[in-house]
Write a protein that binds this DNA or RNA. Structure first.
Length: 427
RNA sequence: CGGGGUGUUGUGUAACGGUAGCACGAAUCGUUUGGGACGAUUUAGUCAGAGUUCGAAUCUCUGCACCCCGACCA
């Protein structure tokens, strides 16, 4: 991608009144644009990051042991289904809207009301169980207070997976496997060390659920980490239970965190209202046991930016970075005719390197802008936060090298142009 | 939803009730060119409505929007 053609403008000044770092940096670097409170557009760079996160999640959901099948359910949902579960009037953040003839609809904040009746059409026998479906789709929640950029929004992409089981034991096993897969997803996104599986209350569905909490001061949740056994619990659990449920210790470390995922054992709470049943081996009708597993993609992206940045900009972990390489062409003096010759040579070298990278399928953003000085390009590169920065300039041209510097390191070094691609491939 | 704050060009900001100014950006020209260059010229603005006043960005009211704190967050 050529930066000169990119639909993106970086902003030098800090936006007024923005409190969270991730929000400030994502806006200034041109990843996202706010339409209104809690609603953002994803610009080309932001969209790429979102897609990276989406693919990591999808891969993990499709393969064993999750074995999810990807589907896409409607955002627009009938009021009747929400009345069946008693949530039309009780789901605080539900967006309710009127269509023609005053017919009422819900904008999906979650999809139990859709997936349960859907499953009813496909589950008749114990032989149909267990199975899981998931989607990566836009959710709407009328949050009373949107805040901190992508960390709490009213419209957001969510991966929600629903599992269907014949027995509670089967759900329990699956649930624990999913929890491990979740930790792996967060690890792959570069926030593994900071992300805890925290025991939480299960609301009206079950006694407990598990939250996945990433430690950051920008988070709005508080979790308690047991100093003895390392178990994390959320505030609800701590209030009910002043001692660690696992090792009975009473010493906890209190940390602020942002919830990037949440998993629930729904049991038969949704199969009952929708009459979702199956026949077991003995021919007896039983309610299907369900699980529900969510990850907020935008929030995850915000969380990564929140925990991985410095004063100059974002520092993307490689797996979620919009590009692996930021190739920067430092424009040499051009007014002097003798130097103009050199200039075209430097540019030609940059083009050659760009094409080599493309040919090798290395994801590269090429700062080919002719009207920006080196300083400005470097400042932009730091702000945007692509993992590897390659510089082609008169200096590097003179020694037939290119400069390479990693975003998370202060050191730059020169590598010969000949065979440079092998260095890049090893990144 | 309770409380607080703020709305001035694309962005960041200034202006006692009295000429809406500065910087960045954008545009043109010239000089520059390895850490956000310089000069000249140009561009574009008082959230909306009502009121007070000779006169309102400024004071009052209403509305709207955004930000922050809290509550809420199956």
């Amino acid at each position: 991608m050529r930066q000169s053609k990119l639909f993106l403008k970086t902003i030098k000044e800090r936006p007024a009144g923005a409190e969270s770092s991730s929000r400030e940096l994502l806006v200034r670097a041109g990843y996202i644009d706010q339409l209104m409170a809690g609603v953002y557009s994803f610009l080309p760079l932001g969209f790429r990051v979102l897609k990276k996160i989406e693919n990591i999640i999808r891969e993990n959901m499709v393969k064993s042991p999750v074995n999810g099948q990807e589907i896409l359910m409607p955002v627009l949902q009938p009021k009747e289904n929400w009345q069946k579960t008693n949530r039309w009037d009780n789901f605080d953040v539900l967006f309710r809207l009127k269509g023609s003839g005053d017919k009422e609809y819900a904008l999906g904040p979650t999809h139990e009301e859709v997936v349960a009746p859907l499953a009813k059409k496909n589950i008749l026998s114990y032989r149909d169980l267990p199975f899981s479906v998931f989607q990566i789709q836009t959710k709407f929640r009328d949050e009373l207070r949107a805040k901190s950029g992508l960390l709490r929004t009213r419209e957001f992409l969510m991966k929600d997976l629903y599992s269907f089981h014949a027995t509670q034991e089967d759900l329990d096993k699956y649930y624990d496997k999913l929890a491990k897969v979740y930790l792996n997803v967060f690890k792959q996104c570069g926030i593994g060390k900071l992300t805890y599986r925290a025991l939480a209350s299960g609301g009206s569905f079950s006694k407990y659920s598990d939250e996945f909490q990433t430690l950051t001061e920008a988070g709005e949740d508080i979790i308690y980490i047991c100093k003895k056994c390392g178990l994390a619990i959320n505030k609800d659990i701590k209030n009910e239970n002043p001692i660690c449920p696992k090792c009975k210790s009473s010493e906890f470390e209190e940390k602020k965190a942002v919830e990037v995922g949440n998993i629930f054992k729904l049991g038969s709470n949704f199969s009952r209202p929708f009459d979702l049943k199956f026949r077991d081996k003995e021919g007896i009708e039983k309610p299907v046991i369900m699980g529900c597993f969510g990850i907020g993609l935008g929030r995850l992206m915000g969380a990564v930016a929140e925990v991985s940045h410095d004063e100059k900009g974002i520092i993307w972990p490689k797996p979620v970075a919009p590009f692996l390489v930021h190739l920067i062409y430092v424009v040499p003096p051009q007014r002097d005719p003798a130097k103009r010759e050199k200039s075209s040579k430097v540019y030609a070298t940059a083009e050659r390197i760009y094409n080599t990278l493309l040919k090798e399928n290395i994801e590269v953003l090429f700062d080919d802008r002719q009207d920006k000085t080196a300083g400005e390009k470097f400042a932009d590169a730091d702000l945007i936060g692509i993992p590897a920065r390659l510089v082609v300039s008169e200096k590097t041209e003179a020694v037939k090298s290119i400069e390479i510097k990693m975003r998370n390191s202060a050191k730059a070094k020169l590598i010969p142009i000949k065979g440079f691609i092998n260095t890049i491939k090893k990144l």
